[in-house]
């Protein structure tokens, strides 16, 4: 028991450090949202809930919320469907399986900046790869970034390309935990491939999918870098989301309080949605039954 005090010290120390790193900025941001401030060094002026009132009366705020939701949901949907599909294929035995499995994770290692540059290089309306490819067939393309649908679509596609490998890896791991005898029992019971997927594979992946959707949901809803690098919220705020709006207010419009209010509301919405989600789909499904 001579080590007790050391453990306690380490424990308290790490709590303090973590608190300072994570809690500090959080508290500071929330605090800022009650003030009017033009810069981090300037004078702070208490304004109460005025920043919040302004934020939720702004149509752009709600449009950004809707944009973010739409982009996040379609990206997660595609990532999960594709991720499960690819994992099922990679889980079958075939020649070169381990090589293909290793290669398939590669996009996940790509820095977002690089991925966005590659996407722009392919899609650029003037000198892009796609343009010259299509031009050789005599087809012209419009500027993807000038229309809402193509701009959002591009963001979704790049995110699918970057983060589907994460889903594939998680699902592949999940597939290993499903006993093969279940499939054999189902085959003897007369179930074909579709029924085996529906009655064994999908229920067996339940916990993995609950966690994957949770994580991807949080990441996608908070996505800033990808959107900023690709569209900066354009055209005409059609790809503006709450994170880009908060950034725009804080650093381009020098309205730190307003930006902080948007960020705080965004944080509260996300926390609320996640709590409801975990209530509906507990990670450990034994809790659901009792």
């Amino acid at each position: 028991m001579a080590q007790d005090w050391r453990i306690v010290t380490l424990f308290i120390g790490s709590i303090l450090v973590l608190g300072a790193i994570i809690g500090g900025p959080l508290v500071y941001a929330i605090m800022l949202s009650f003030y009017s401030a033009k810069s981090f060094v300037g004078e702070l002026q208490w304004v109460g809930l005025a920043n919040y009132a302004k934020a939720i009366q702004d149509p752009l705020f709600w449009q950004s919320f809707a944009n973010g939701l739409m982009i996040a949901l379609s990206a997660i949907f595609l990532q999960v469907v594709l991720g499960v599909g690819i994992a099922l294929v990679l889980n079958r035995r075939f020649f070169g399986q381990s090589v293909v499995r290793a290669v398939s994770i590669l996009p996940y290692f790509l820095p977002t900046v690089v991925a966005c540059l590659i996407a722009q290089w392919i899609l650029d309306p003037n000198y892009g790869l796609l343009k010259s490819l299509l031009a050789s067939f005599g087809i012209g393309i419009a500027d993807w970034s000038s229309q809402a649908f193509t701009a959002r679509g591009t963001i979704v596609l790049v995110s699918v390309w970057l983060w589907t490998p994460f889903v594939v890896t998680c699902v592949l791991a999940g597939l290993q935990t499903i006993p093969t005898q279940l499939y054999e029992a189902a085959r003897v019971d007369g179930a074909g491939p579709w029924r085996q997927f529906w009655h064994i594979t999908l229920p067996g992946l339940r916990s993995v999918l609950v966690v994957v959707i949770l994580l991807r949901g949080i990441w996608m809803f908070n996505k800033f870098d990808l959107i900023w690098l690709l569209t900066k919220g354009g055209p005409l705020n059609q790809t503006e989301t709450l994170p880009t709006l908060a950034y725009r207010k804080s650093f381009l419009e020098f309205n730190l309080g307003g930006g902080a209010a948007v960020a705080t509301i965004s944080f509260l919405i996300l926390a609320g949605v996640m709590l409801i989600y975990l209530r509906l789909f507990p990670i450990d499904d034994t809790k659901q039954e009792r």
Binding site: Q181, L182, E184, A185, A186, V188, I200, G204
Partner: peptide, 13 residues
């Protein structure tokens, strides 16, 4: 045919 497996292979869900 019907088969009974050593570790039961009941559908867990």
């Amino acid at each position: 045919v019907a088969m009974v497996f050593q570790n039961y292979a009941l559908y867990p869900q």
